[in-house]
Nucleic acid binder design. Structure first.
Length: 909
RNA sequence: GGACGCUUAGCUCAGUUGGUAGAGCAUCUCGUUUACACCGAGGAGGUCGAAGGUUCGAGUCCUUCAGCGUCCACCA
């Protein structure tokens, strides 16, 4: 008998247990060719972040998979890591410096100093997230931890870049970016704010057509009119070229067509300004048009405006309108035009789109030798998923994935910030330019352009070329460029390591569905490209075999938990402190189905805390009722499972193992957890343990089932199960135990001898009632769950179906009046027990009759369908088989119902 | 504007190939006994968003509509 506290206190166990696991090297798998490998690369949280519920969910699910596979004999590797989170980190540190009085950190500190500030900051805060990952119980291999800016990963990034550069996939090209003339910087899309504004909308005569525009000041270089191809009004103009009078005199213009034009808007005809409008830029690219710069980097008109050159863009509109009006070209003005203007959320400067040189990945160039023909990155990305080399769960996201790929444009990989992997490219410049360049601390690629530095002579290299004067591209790579390599760069690529050979491709990528494009797609891109050019077989080039997309966690109101609204956030760490890690993990797993969002609220976590405590107490009961020898002895099920109850619980256990395996393999974690929950609470605790009280106690079976429960639960609630295990087994840890085995075809049910014992109960109850003179309605729980049900016998037959707990038998009549009946479930079968008037036979009969009718209806329907030649001849064979199977099942259940009815008829007489 | 998803008990959500609706919480009744009150037993509560269609049979498949949400794009 072992003394254990009455309630489980997670705080007393979790940290010690985690340390024990880690110290024992349980997380560090070996490269063992006799075992199969199972690998997950952890989606790296921000190195400077703190744990939120998204991370917690990710960690819980991945840990379940890893522990499950580990216990199943796999060499299970889970690589942890953190991400440098370029933009987020740099802006956090910049803000911090600003609050310390450095107003413009980039300009004032310069590259080197700012970078070292960021590094210091990351160094300080990295440990926080690491410890928080540990708090979740994550069984990841810390000896293989990686950081996206590690030297080895930088090497991978540079190799990737260089290879693509040499293949001509990476190119330097024009791109329209958001430029803030006020702050002299580019603005990322997510830093834009849209402000609705009411302005004037002008109509001008433009040759033979009238065009509408809200921005006349940009129209200097417009030489192309675009109309919708189906717009009848302009049909005869398609492709025509003509001369017309415009702002600075006569120009030549032509008419093109494009589907993107909305005939309803304005006059249905517009001219385009490629250099200063996203949509116009795209049109210009598509139709191969010139893109003259009209507005310079300071927000003033360029020489394209002729005599208006140098006019501030804010003043230009009125001047242009005036000129056009004088020329008699102004048709009308619409005063109430509403549209959105883009503003930099920092500084609120109005954003002017500008064309800048950026680095791109060409997704259409056919370079990858794949299935005997050269394919483009885009095609390979489609192929891997189409051919099921990569499976996405839930599968509907495959549609989303293909949709995205179909619309995929070249990927712009350069970013105008400093924190990240600097682009390994050097430009040859004149000495003067180099000096000019070095004078500007705020070095970023847009300065190259705005300073007018020529950057035509380019070399891709990590180190500065020796001859001539060179400047390195100051930009860094998009974070996703380095994240894309994550599954194999963490295993040592570009070196050909043993790890890479053994653990790659990884088994599953588990993440939220929100980053399927940013990350999942890019990983497929990088992995297939890099490993294929390494010469690997195609099935080994994918980064992972499965993609599992979990649902996003929302607050009780269904809102995305957001840092900007801290009041809506549930802090996982606070919840861990309050309820324990196990409870938090379960609450994130149960009810979370792939790809669907889930709301979380504190009561739910409290509910699972109750369950964790239930496990603890069930184990406590077991430990109070078994001897030391029982703990150390082996079980032989055939020999030791004696009673019906034993067999019942073991059969259910067995079925449970099978179901849980199936569910986990199919990524149905919620189902798996619920099934174990129900079994543990409903079958084992409420039922089997109750029966075990008293002389029915069978310590061997009690323990056997408990141990299996702990094993099955371990991936879900690792701490409490390990804590209990330490009482059962002082030598070995649960984390290393073998997963329970499903035994095919165990059947203990037909045991004639058992039937004898069932009648003991009836006798017992009767004698009890006679002795104690139980009043109507009074409970006789105590004596029943004392185990008396195995004693006597009265009626020798296999009884019927009904669920009730032994402990809740009620005697409703007095003394010897035993006329009616009720049923109890005893050890997996049920027995008919004469007792009070608990059962309304008529009600029971009509219920069964109704079921009977229902079954008959289905059977006749099915039968006629199966006789129908139209169905037999046209339906696929497997459907017919299925229908036949259902018919057979229904017929069987019909017979069962009939028997049941007959039995009840007998009883009620 | 485009794509995708959601709508099932008072609340939060399950429901795997179509076979006739489930759980937890809340509520009500009873009970507190030797693992557990973070407990036990039982009850009540749903025309599965609306309308059509396919089928012997639809929460499940198809069409339309309504409400909500997410992502992407962005109005010259």
């Amino acid at each position: 008998m072992i003394e254990i506290e009455k309630a489980y206190d997670p705080k007393k166990f979790e940290n010690d247990i985690y340390k024990k696991w880690e110290d024992s090297k349980a997380f560090t798998p070996e490269i063992d060719k006799s075992k199969r490998s199972y690998t997950i690369a952890m989606p790296p949280p921000n190195a400077t972040g703190t744990l939120h519920l998204g991370h917690a969910t990710m960690l819980a699910i991945e840990d379940i998979l890893i522990r499950y596979k580990r216990m199943n004999g796999f060499s299970a590797l889970w690589i942890p890591g953190t991400d440098h989170a370029a933009i987020a980190t740099q802006s956090v540190v910049e803000k911090k410096l600003q609050s310390e009085g450095i107003e413009n950190p980039r300009r004032q500190l310069g590259r080197e100093k700012l970078l070292s500030e960021i590094k210091k900051y990351v160094q300080d805060s990295k440990q926080t997230i690491r410890n928080q990952i540990r708090k979740m119980g994550s069984s990841c291999d810390w000896t293989r931890e990686k950081y996206t800016l590690d030297d080895s990963l930088n090497k991978a990034v540079n190799t990737f870049f260089k290879r693509m550069y040499e293949d001509g996939i990476i190119y330097h090209g024009d791109r329209i970016v958001n430029w803030d003339p006020k702050m002299q910087t580019t603005v990322a899309d997510d830093e834009l704010e849209y402000k609705e504004e009411t302005t004037k909308f002008y109509y001008f005569q433009y040759g033979p057509v009238v065009i509408g525009t809200a921005r006349p000041e940009t129209k200097f270089g417009d030489k192309v009119i675009v109309v919708h191809p189906d717009d009848e009004r302009y049909k005869e103009l398609h492709g025509k070229e003509f001369e017309l009078e415009w702002i600075n005199g006569p120009i030549k213009a032509k008419v093109i067509t494009d589907e993107c034009i909305d005939p309803e808007l304005g006059t249905g005809a517009m001219t385009i300004t490629p250099a200063h409008s996203h949509i116009d830029f795209e049109l210009a690219e598509k139709h191969n048009l010139e893109k003259p710069q009209i507005i310079d980097f300071n927000g003033k008109l360029t020489s394209a405006a002729a005599e208006l050159e140098g006019t501030d863009i804010a003043d230009a509109r009125d001047k242009v309108v005036e000129i056009l009006q004088k020329k008699g070209l102004l048709v009308k003005i619409d005063e109430n035009y509403k549209h959105n203007i883009a503003v930099n959320y920092r500084g609120k400067g109005i954003v002017e789109p500008q064309i800048m040189k950026q680095w791109f990945i060409d997704v259409n160039k056919k370079v990858i030798d794949w299935k005997g023909s050269k394919r483009s990155i885009k095609e390979v990305m489609q192929d891997t998923v189409k051919s099921k080399m990569i499976k996405i769960v839930p599968s509907r996201f495959e549609k989303t994935y293909f949709n995205w790929i179909d619309n995929l444009k070249d990927w712009c990989i350069s970013r105008q910030i400093w924190w990240g992997h600097q682009i390994p490219v050097w430009y040859k410049v004149s000495k003067t330019h180099k000096d000019l360049w070095q004078k500007h601390n705020e070095s970023s690629s847009y300065l190259l352009q705005s300073l007018g530095i020529m950057i035509d002579d380019v070399i891709c290299s990590e180190t500065e070329p020796t001859e001539g004067s060179w400047i390195r591209d100051p930009d860094t790579l998009d974070t996703w460029f380095s994240s894309a390599l994550w599954t194999f760069s963490t295993l040592g690529w570009p070196e050909k390591t043993k790890e890479l050979e053994y653990f790659h491709p990884t088994s599953v990528l588990e993440t939220g569905y929100d980053i399927i494009f940013f990350w999942v797609a890019r990983m497929i891109l990088a992995s297939t490209y890099c490993l294929r050019t390494d010469g690997l077989a195609e099935e080994n080039c994918v980064p992972f075999k499965d993609v599992y997309l979990h649902g996003l966690i929302r607050d009780i109101n269904g809102l995305k938990m957001s840092k900007s609204r801290p009041e809506t956030c549930i802090d996982p760490l606070e919840m861990i402190y309050k309820y324990g890690t196990d409870a938090v993990r379960l609450s994130l797993i149960v009810g979370n189905t792939p790809g669907n969002d889930m709301r979380l609220y504190e009561e739910k976590i409290a509910g699972y805390r109750n369950f964790v405590n239930k496990i603890w107490n069930a184990s406590r009961f077991a430990l109070m009722n078994v001897s030391k020898e029982d703990l150390n002895s082996e079980i032989n099920l055939k020999e030791h499972a004696k009673t019906r109850a034993d067999k019942w619980i073991i059969n259910h256990m067995n079925q449970l193992i099978k179901d849980v395996n199936g569910s986990i393999e199919k990524y149905r974690f919620s189902d798996a957890a619920t099934m174990i929950y129900d079994f543990t609470w409903g079958n084992y605790c409420d039922w089997y343990l109750e029966i075990s009280k008293g002389e029915h106690l069978n310590p061997k079976v009690l323990l056997h089932v408990l141990k299996n429960i702990l094993k099955l639960l371990h991936p879900f609630v690792p701490f409490v199960t390990e804590a209990i295990w330490s009482f059962l087994d002082q030598k070995n840890m649960l984390i290393n135990e073998e997963w329970p085995e499903y035994i095919e075809g165990v059947n203990f049910n037909s045991d004639a001898e058992e039937m004898e014992k069932i009648h003991d109960i009836i006798t017992a109850i009767r004698s009890f009632r006679a002795e104690k003179k139980v009043d109507a309605g009074k409970k006789i729980n105590a004596i029943i769950y004392g185990g008396l049900w195995t004693k006597a016998i009265e009626e020798k037959r296999e009884p019927i179906i009904r669920m009730a707990r032994l402990s809740d038998l009620q005697v409703q009549t007095e003394g010897e009046k035993v006329e009616n009946a009720f049923w109890i479930l005893a050890g997996g079968i049920s027995i008919y027990l004469p007792a009070g008037d608990m059962i309304d036979f008529e009600k029971e009969k009509s219920k069964i009759k109704k079921e009977l009718e229902n079954e008959e209806k289905i059977i006749s329907g099915l039968a006629s369908k199966l006789k129908n030649p139209g169905f037999i001849n046209n339906a696929p064979a497997d459907i017919i088989e299925k229908e036949k199977k259902i018919l057979a099942e229904k017929e069987e259940s019909l017979n069962n119902l009939k028997e049941k009815l007959e039995e009840i008829n007998n009883m009620s007489q």
